[in-house]
């Protein structure tokens, strides 16, 4: 265990954290799937309103996506702009 450096430990834990942060992708996946399914059902019931249904569905999906993107941004921060390294190791 002695050969693990502080920097290596921080990098390893940050990478694991980045992987864990991407679990956030599950939620938007389910949410967007539900929205798309309901949209398809709505078009089936009322094909005339296809344009309105499409735009509402896309808007809802975009809003549902936000939480997943927060996870992505945190993962990217941990991987490529790690705040811990400069804070604790003064690199």
């Amino acid at each position: 265990m002695e050969q693990i450096t502080n920097e290596g430990l921080i990098l390893a834990c940050s990478t694991i954290g980045a992987g864990l942060a991407m679990i956030a992708g599950i939620g938007p996946g389910i949410g967007q799937g539900i929205a798309a399914g309901q949209g398809a059902a709505a078009v089936g019931r009322n094909p005339g309103a296809k344009g309105d249904i499409m735009s509402t569905m896309l808007l809802g999906q975009a809003v549902a996506e936000t939480t997943g993107l927060y996870g992505l941004v945190i993962a990217l921060l941990l991987m490529y702009a790690n705040p811990m390294l400069s804070k604790f190791l003064s690199l």
Binding site: A62, E65, T66, L69, Y70, L72, V73, L76
Partner: peptide, 15 residues
């Protein structure tokens, strides 16, 4: 939230 949504999507594609 608006800016992070656009940034995240385009950045994900770029990455």
């Amino acid at each position: 939230s608006m800016s992070l949504r656009l940034f995240g999507n385009v950045m994900a594609g770029t990455v």
